[in-house]
Amino acid sequence: MSLLEIKNLHVEIDGKKILNGLSLNVEKGQVAAIMGPNGSGKSTLAYVLAGKEDYDVTEGDILFDGESILDMDPDVRAAKGLFLAFQYPIEIPGVATMNFLRTALNAQRKARGEGELSTPEFLKRVREAAAKLDIDPEMLKRSVNVGFSGGEKKRAEVLQMTMFEPRLAILDETDSGLDIDALKIAADGVNRLRSPERSFLVITHYQRLLDHIVPDVVHVLSKGRIVRTGGKELALELEARGYAEYQDEAA
């Protein structure tokens, strides 16, 4: 059974159709890349999977571990192991990053019927994870994403991902706004998390992220549906030829 099964998904926002019969499976332990031109529905897919309101699913279903998650609140999905690394991480003034991590982690653990982490155990995990991502511990005292550079924000997202140990991590344009060094640090962080028990859905416009996070499979999204699926070499082909043919094909 696939970890994630998206079946004939139709999604509208404000009456405008964005996803148009999208079907896709992500296997356990698989790293799947979704590539596509601007406006093809990449971010919508990420948000719908995470359970953001304002999106109307008019047809189809999303199964996570065989169970439909369409009626689940975002926090319930999170506790089940679904994580979204945001393209534009949100700032929360006055809430220290460390505190945020701990509150969220314990909320998830609680929802799963696990006990809260002890303070020393939590601190140990955060420090280890932060060090590997080259995150200054001082940064964890600052408010969530407030005053963080683009690179710091993305690294902070990967830090959260590391702490929450999701079963499916969705990376929404994690490469956007990153220089090559920052990109490498973030990608290394993701690569460390790869395991047979964890799946990734890497959403990106450009191939360069996939040089660092090498996918098992590449899907091309256009006009709200998957129009082609191939191996990692498909990304290179897209980089060379651009998306023009897929836009025409779908039109």
Partner: peptide, 12 residues
């Protein structure tokens, strides 16, 4: 902001 927090596991 609320969605971001909820995606991390917090209820509304």
């Amino acid at each position: 902001m609320l969605f971001y927090c909820r995606q991390r596991g917090l209820s509304a």
